[in-house]
Design a protein around this nucleic acid. Sequence first.
DNA 1: TAACTACTTTATAATTATTCTAAAGTATGT
DNA 2: ACATACTTTAGAATAATTATAAAGTAGTTA
Lengths: 140, 140
Amino acid sequence: MHKMNSKNKTFIDKLRSSGLRPTNQRVEISKFLFNRKKTFHFTVEELKNSMNLKRSKKISTATFYNTVHALKSAGYLKEFSLENNTSYYDTNIKSHHHFFDNGKVIDIKSDKITFQKLPDAPKGKKIKNVEVVIRLENNN
Amino acid sequence: MHKMNSKNKTFIDKLRSSGLRPTNQRVEISKFLFNRKKTFHFTVEELKNSMNLKRSKKISTATFYNTVHALKSAGYLKEFSLENNTSYYDTNIKSHHHFFDNGKVIDIKSDKITFQKLPDAPKGKKIKNVEVVIRLENNN
DNA sequence: TAACTACTTTATAATTATTCTAAAGTATGT
DNA sequence: ACATACTTTAGAATAATTATAAAGTAGTTA
Ligand SMILES: [Mn+2]
Ligand SMILES: [Mn+2]
Ligand SMILES: [Zn+2]
Ligand SMILES: [Zn+2]
């Protein structure tokens, strides 16, 4: 028994177009991920904790993992890594750059960085994308 | 009871200067890591397997982890991440760039990439380093 | 609407990478 | 050679993730 407003329509389409039944859990997760103005960078554990905190009926860990993987396979999420052993996900699926500031991740739009010189791909290979990480530290 | 040639001297100094006693295990690992012409990128598990394969007396997993961490803390190794949840280490400790080609990592010297435009650091922050990953795919 | 079936969720077990623990072994100074 | 602090090691513990399989639900279809 759940209501459905026009806002949710988008997510339902996103899910259906990925061959995923728009179950309650999936719609809720999609809403949480995509219904925001700024890019969202997260781990599955963070996603689970922040969503389940507010819910009486918790969504299971497995469903968070399943849904994030499905959305990634469908091309709605991008995976990346910091230097620990946890997967991060990015709601910005376009090729782009990042500031890394002590575990905090900030997007840099692709056109904010341009190259003067870039190496050629080794023979038999071609460049798929070029992504830059700018690591930050505090002044002084 | 172990012999010691002049080749090992370097590694012993490296270890001593890091406050580490040059035990047999640490010297062997250092030799394996640093006694090569090209940069070496590896996971602890890979290191352990390739070294222990050739040895009758195996070095323990804990010692591989301990030694790699110690060498990293001493500044002789750099840690980085691909998009799985495993730590990689790099014997090239200078800031530099990489090609990523299906799990294979290739160094790009810093001066092979130069920038035309780079964003400013957010206020209160400064740039520590800028590293580029060029992802490759096969032609056609 | 009832029934059917394939897909989904979930609790729980398993796996992988890594770290911790504490006992036995070793390097270094005296 | 002795003492002592540092090291190695097997094995237990932890964290992130994936697998399993039983119970539940969505999208048909009758
Ligand atoms: Mn881990
Ligand atoms: Mn893992
Ligand atoms: Zn991003
Ligand atoms: Zn490198």
